[in-house]
């Protein structure tokens, strides 16, 4: 296994070197380059900047599929459904699969893998020599429209995103990568499943505003939408709320992931 991984990395590195020697951007198979830019957080403290710079990074073009995740659990038995520690994945983990190493009709090979915990997603990313994207990176990539880098000012883009939110999730899920590519060449960010981000636990909108965190005092003193970038960005509220409701061992329907790589 170790050899296979290292050979894979070596091949990638050599391929990268060859491309680089020709003076081109070293591409990574299945990943799109998201150029450096800014991320405008939906919520921020009163001292936080409105724009957070995001360095250029590679992002998987589509979410990780059931077939790919199956390869991973084959190689790393501790991430199989029957063996995973409840610390790292709850009882919903891979529950759509027919068995430990069998996908079955509810989990088509080319559909995005869902019901994976943050720990499992991160372990997959590490095994692939990648990592999970940060909230800033994910949101930066998802802010692009189909035809231009700024989706918010693209006619019809917001409506398309909202249309997905109001549709019930099809079962089984359609193939990953079947959505339309955005301006950066990334697919399915806003139209297939929710996705884990590495620092999902920085979304601090907790239910217990009295109790367990300090940020609401600055954010929500006065009115709920004060300090919010764009109160009409309903999907961004949905994502923030969804992230804040998660715990790292949750394995829930419609929540998958994709990987990133620093440039």
């Amino acid at each position: 296994m170790r050899c296979r991984r290292h050979c894979f990395l070596l091949v990638l590195a050599v391929a990268g070197a060859l491309l680089g020697a020709r003076g081109e951007e070293a591409g990574v198979a299945g990943m799109a380059l998201v150029p450096a830019g800014d991320y405008a957080p939906l919520l921020r403290g009163k001292d936080d900047p409105a724009l957070v710079p995001v360095a250029a990074f590679w992002l998987d073009v589509r979410p990780v599929t059931n077939a790919e995740f199956l390869e991973f659990v084959r190689a790393q038995p501790r991430w199989r459904r029957s063996r995973v520690s409840p610390l790292f994945a709850d009882e919903g983990y891979l529950a759509d699969w027919a068995g430990d190493l069998e996908l079955g009709p509810r989990a088509p090979a080319d559909a995005p893998v869902v019901r994976v915990s943050w720990f499992a997603a991160r372990a997959y990313a590490q095994a692939s020599g990648k990592r999970l994207p940060t909230t800033a990176e994910w949101e930066r990539a998802a802010a692009a429209g189909f035809a231009q880098a700024d989706g918010a000012s693209e006619a019809g883009f917001k409506a398309t995103v909202l249309a997905w939110l109001v549709q019930p999730t099809p079962a089984p899920l359609p193939p990953a990568g079947s959505g339309r590519a955005n301006y950066f060449g990334v697919r399915d960010l806003l139209s297939l499943v929710w996705e884990w981000v590495d620092d999902f636990n920085t979304a601090m909108v907790t239910g217990e505003s009295r109790a367990d965190s300090g940020l609401e005092r600055t954010l929500f003193c006065g009115s709920g939408a004060a300090g919010v970038r764009d109160p009409s960005d309903y999907p961004a509220f949905m994502r923030t709320g969804f992230r804040s409701s998660l715990r790292a061992n949750y394995a829930v329907p419609n929540l998958g992931f994709r990987c990133a790589l620093s440039r």
Partner: peptide
């Protein structure tokens, strides 16, 4: 970029 990529992959390895 190739060098950066290789370094990144080495770190990952």
């Amino acid at each position: 970029p190739a060098v950066v990529l290789c370094l990144g992959l080495q770190a990952a390895a």
